[in-house]
């Protein structure tokens, strides 16, 4: 079973990652392993350092200390911040994907929905117009956007549709690891539910590994296998999602869990 062999090595190894902004702490001494197909949730209130951490993990923000090592498909382990800028950019275009909270940060608003998806394929070397258009149509379908919207610009889409388009744009290149920053933030509750169902299905069907930052415990209960709880830049609790939520140990996690209003 090749899948089992692939699973023997962590996809991402994070050791003692810290990031300071001058004297101010962003995040400190974060370490964990992420395996293929695993979804890790990072929760905490605003200012807890979770977005800083996500940026450090995803190659966007160089940590002040520590290392992020990615297990590539064919070339062994890659120390993300010791690799060249070009190598890191290639990684971000091919093996990795990033879903922004605000779809406008992940989409090009001036080009059509189809072009938004097709562009990512062209960036990894696909040149056949028919293939690109077919892949774009297929992906719009998978994120439940009707084929007749292919030539519309995202400015004509609702917030939920924009977010689904962003997800199609990220996943079309078949990344192995996806970073998501509050993927359901800013959406109506009913739209959130639909997006969550979609994400859960895609992550599972594609066997994606993902790191999801959110302040919404319902999102991680649904998507994440494991949780990191952050407070004041540090990880205060780490473990199996249902254990962290049902048997929280740290005072802050207990406060977080007990603060959720029952539906």
């Amino acid at each position: 079973m090749s899948a089992a062999q692939d699973n023997d090595l962590p996809l991402l190894t994070v050791r003692d990652v810290s990031r300071y902004y001058g004297a101010r702490l962003g995040c400190r001494d974060v370490s964990f392993d992420l395996w293929p197909g695993e979804v890790l949730g990072i929760v905490g209130e605003s200012g807890s350092g979770k977005s800083t951490l996500l940026n450090c993990l995803s190659g966007k923000l160089e940590p002040s200390g520590g290392e992020v090592v990615y297990q590539t498909r064919h070339e062994g382990a890659l120390d993300v911040y010791r690799a060249s800028e070009a190598r890191r950019r290639l990684l971000l275009r091919t093996d990795w994907g990033f879903v922004h909270q605000n779809p406008r940060d992940g989409l090009r608003m001036a080009v059509s929905a189809g072009a938004n998806v097709g562009e990512r394929l062209m960036a990894v070397g696909d040149r056949h117009y028919g293939n690109i258009r077919a892949a774009a149509t297929d992906w719009l379908g998978r994120v439940e956007i009707a084929a007749d919207r292919l030539d519309d610009r995202p400015t004509a889409f609702s917030g939920g549709m924009q977010q689904r388009l962003q997800i199609a744009r990220v996943l079309v290149t078949k990344p192995r690891l996806v970073f998501m920053d509050e993927p359901t933030g800013g959406l109506d509750v009913s739209v959130q539910a639909r997006l969550l169902d979609l994400l859960r299905g895609l992550v599972r069907d594609l066997g994606l590994a993902a790191i999801v930052v959110t302040h919404d415990l319902a999102v991680v209960r649904l998507l994440a296998h494991r949780l990191l709880v952050m407070k004041d830049g540090e990880v205060v609790e780490h473990g199996l999602t249902d254990r962290v939520l049902d048997d929280p140990q740290h005072p802050y996690t207990q406060l977080l869990v007990s603060s959720v209003l029952p539906a």
């Binding site: 473990g239 199996l240 249902d242 254990r243 049902d246 048997d247 140990q249």
Partner: peptide
């Protein structure tokens, strides 16, 4: 039972 299932630590 929850301890055995890993739901509690």
């Amino acid at each position: 039972l929850r301890l055995l299932y890993g739901n509690y630590g």
